[in-house]
Design a protein around this nucleic acid. Structure first.
Lengths: 85, 85
DNA sequence: TGTCTAATTAGTTATTTACCTAATTGTATA
DNA sequence: TATACAATTAGGTAAATAACTAATTAGACA
């Protein structure tokens, strides 16, 4: 849970998730094009999102495709529901 | 949204929310008793939770009672649902 | 093989965060 | 009034975070 909350606590990372939600799979470079930020910084954000399980990555040749993975958000939902009991 | 994610990105603050969920309203001192942390630190956490709208506070004499306020979690839920579209 | 491109790793820096102790504010009550 | 207690504010420090540039790794292809 800690990794999820950490990953979501950044506007750039939330925008990346929204972007992937709208566009489907994108490469790191395609994601980079949408932000005014260096590629290494974007790469770091993608790594944090992957550690949290919020995106998956698949290597195709020299490209790495990132995809939104919302399954882990169920944990967050369960946490919210417990709080409301 | 930023304040909510920020507030939730800390284990102590999440535990405070869970505690309030279980026990109802508590004073800052009562909350402090449950943690091995100084009162000013707990006070600071409570302030962050209040800024996010996750708790409300009511002063009764020299005591301040803190209560869980989950309404703002609806914003989080909406955000999660949009991501899944 | 050499060069281009995609992406990450390494290393650095400024800012933010979470904690502490000491001091202050405000209320209750002997 | 003075003492005790609840809670916060003030001030300071160590660790974590987010950003950058430079360097490296690895695949594509002429």
């Amino acid at each position: 849970m800690d990794d999820i909350f950490k990953a979501l606590n950044d506007e750039t990372r939330r925008q990346i998730l929204t972007l992937l939600s709208e566009k489907g799979s994108l490469t790191a470079s395609e994601i980079h094009e949408e932000f005014e930020m260096s590629k290494p910084s974007i790469s770091n954000h993608l790594n944090i999102l992957r550690n949290a399980g919020l995106v998956t990555s698949e290597k195709k040749g020299q490209y790495i495709h990132y995809t939104l993975h919302t399954t882990v958000l169920q944990d967050l939902l369960v946490w919210m529901i417990k709080l409301n009991k």
